[in-house]
Nucleic acid binder design. Structure first.
Lengths: 235, 235
DNA sequence: CCAAAAGTGTTACAAGTACACCCATGA
DNA sequence: TCATGGGTGTACTTGTAACACTTTTGG
């Protein structure tokens, strides 16, 4: 490392930003929240919500602040994804971006997104049909989706994409969407229920034009207890 | 994001560093390469090799440069680990550090480490018995070891810690060390060999005071071919 | 009564786990 | 000849995969 005299002024520094890949699920598709840029560079293009890190805030704090400011979201699952720092990734100069990904239930958050994005335009796009993105954001999005695909199989993070109470069919459909392959209904239920962390409630689905399904919920306490006993979630 | 006028000078920026967790295996312990700091802060304390990112180099390039400069290492497995950016992690001011972890065979690299670390002192420590570290480097090291533990089970990165030709007992011992649990010899061999990417050579171990073991090697080509066919490495 | 999704078990096969002895070599 | 690790097979248990029909409900 360098002497502390040099530390204070000698070297130019890259700018440091955070970008957030906000993923949601609407019972049909995996979607991502994008913001239309109102300034150059890439004015008019869609981009991930993000911005520069302030001197007095942690990285995750910066990501949460941007989520609040640009998307009106709070209290979502948020985890660091990867740091992107290629020299040419921003035409304005050297910008290193720490990317985070957030998971949320689309239904619960689309209102607050709509309500809070004042003049700026924000919209949800199916991940499979995103428009061309600013900067290297397509690569960041891709990294996030791959991370989700990998992680969903050995950590119970899929539940973050569903409402608190959900049917087993919804859960199965979510896994089929994320993993991009069909799953057998009976085997899926057997496995999920045998793990004991998805428990039934006394409620059932409302307003459907067919037999109403039982609602279940993810019991986080139980999950943590099991994990301490060496249990491993695995799809 | 901000208008580009502001971009160039308005906001103060955190300093950006890379730190490397270099892990090695010596047939006995998992070890980490540490550098003794010769300047303040933490003068005299052990720390991970690392340094500031230059404006014209990518993050991984910076990590590789530091590995070369501070440890004399090149051509090692290197992967981004996590970015640490808590506000108070460096007493000199705001420093965000992108951490990488490297894996290498200790025997092959300890000479080049010894040869190249001129005045500075560098040394290998068993991970289980590291001295107290500068900054938040203990946390970074811990994160790296956890990552290795997790990743070694579903990606064939363990081989990076062994010489090119190795015995199955060495491989087993490596897994036992990293995963911190005993494995059954027959089952381990059965599984590894059934995957078909660890192939026997016509060489055997030399200079041992007991029956010499056959040497095997990891066939990366075969691994990539299998992976394209949907195969998944799993311990 | 029809459409649409909910819910439910069994069997065959594959994979994982537990386990103990003889072999080859150098000291 | 002894100490040290190398090398091998089988039985049992567990998990995974394939598979089809009846039930409930609203329209």
């Amino acid at each position: 490392m360098e002497p502390s005299l040099a530390f204070t002024y000698e070297y130019p520094r890259p700018a440091l930003a955070v970008d957030c890949v906000v993923l949601g699920f609407d019972e049909e598709d995996l979607k991502v929240l994008l913001i239309q840029r109102d300034i150059d560079p890439f004015k008019g293009k869609w981009a991930l919500p993000g911005g520069f890190v302030r001197m007095d805030e942690g990285l995750e704090d910066a990501a949460r602040r941007e989520l609040r400011e640009e998307a009106g979201m709070k209290d979502v699952f948020l985890e660091q994804l990867y740091t992107f720092g290629d020299v040419g990734r921003d035409p304005r100069g050297r910008v290193v971006s720490v990317a985070y990904y957030a998971l949320c239930n689309l239904k619960e958050h689309e209102d607050e997104v709509a309500a809070s994005t004042d003049a700026r335009s924000a919209a949800w796009f199916a991940v499979a049909a995103t428009p061309s993105l600013a900067f290297d954001h397509a690569r960041i999005l891709d990294t996030a989706v791959e991370r989700l695909k990998g992680k969903v199989r050995y950590q119970p993070i899929g539940f973050e994409l569903l409402p608190e109470r959900f049917t087993l069919s919804q859960l199965q459909h979510l896994y089929e969407t994320v993993l991009d392959r069909p799953l057998d209904k009976r085997n899926f239920r057997k496995k999920i229920l045998s793990m004991g962390m998805v428990v039934e409630t006394d409620e059932i689905q409302q307003d459907v034009a067919h037999r109403a399904a039982r609602l279940y919920r993810f019991d986080e306490q139980k999950y943590h207890r099991l994990r301490k006993k060496g249990f491993n979630f695995e799809l």
